[in-house]
């Protein structure tokens, strides 16, 4: 096979490489933000917040080079689909990092409030699953593995279930105003992690589009299980 556009295809590979880096950083931020929350570690939460700037720099760099590549290289076929996927995945990963920052900020805001160990363990479980979802989506992307991408909705189900149960768990805390305040904040954390999981599913949907040329949502948001 003769490569007639090596510069262009090198640039595509570099853009994808930056996404892999962003995926690793976003995964770690989700994991560490939930760990800081569980430990009530305000300093660790601040460290997660600081790590958002490098992700934003990567995001802006990918976006800038994406525009340049589109204008100069006029990609077609699978290269065009990959460019579309890069633009979307870039946004999803940046968003996941932002959601980790939200969790970290709630940890800071909840400092000093009492907590419920059961709810914390549920949030830890959600965080572990979401982090593994982001990692799985990016590994599937790197390996061009459609089967692995299609497994993401299944991974997302317990996250959705845990998020829905959060309302009842918070209701249990209604007798203690301080605990209730903490519980309401944790409900936001659960919702935030659930959104991060959805972004991981979106990354997998993009991979399916790249490989098949047809875009379809894995799950219908208006008919959640």
């Amino acid at each position: 096979m003769t490569e007639l556009r090596p510069h262009f295809h090198d640039e595509l590979a570099q853009l994808e490489g930056d996404l892999v880096l962003m995926g690793e950083q976003a995964t770690a931020m989700i994991r560490d933000s939930v760990a800081a929350l569980a430990a009530g570690d305000v300093a660790a939460a601040a460290e997660v917040i600081e790590r958002d700037d490098p992700v934003d720099d990567l995001y802006l760099g990918v976006h800038s080079r994406w525009l340049e590549t589109m204008a100069l290289q006029t990609p077609v076929a699978i290269d065009l689909r990959l460019m579309s996927v890069i633009l979307h995945v870039n946004s999803h990963l940046e968003r996941i990092a932002d959601l980790a920052v939200t969790v970290a900020k709630i940890t800071q805001a909840s400092n000093g409030l009492p907590h419920d160990p059961t709810m914390v363990s549920h949030l830890q479980e959600m965080g572990e699953i979401v982090a593994s979802m982001v990692r799985a989506a990016m590994e599937a992307f790197a390996a061009r593995d459609l089967t692995a991408a299609l497994s993401l909705p299944e991974m997302d189900r317990p996250v959705n279930r845990l998020n829905r149960n959060m309302v009842r768990e918070v209701a249990r805390l209604a007798g203690d105003p301080e605990l209730l305040e903490w519980g309401v904040r944790m409900m936001v954390v659960a919702r935030t992690l659930e959104r991060a999981g959805d972004n991981a599913v979106d990354v997998a949907e993009q991979l399916a589009f790249l490989l098949t040329g047809e875009f379809r949502e894995f799950t219908d948001a208006s008919h959640h299980d």
Binding site: M1, T2, V76
Partner: peptide, 20 residues
């Protein structure tokens, strides 16, 4: 379709510059 999702690998290789 040819320029977004061609059905044949040989088409894709040619139009994306991987022809040889």
């Amino acid at each position: 379709k040819i320029f977004t999702n061609p059905g044949e690998t040989r088409t894709e290789d040619y139009i994306t510059g991987r022809f040889g």
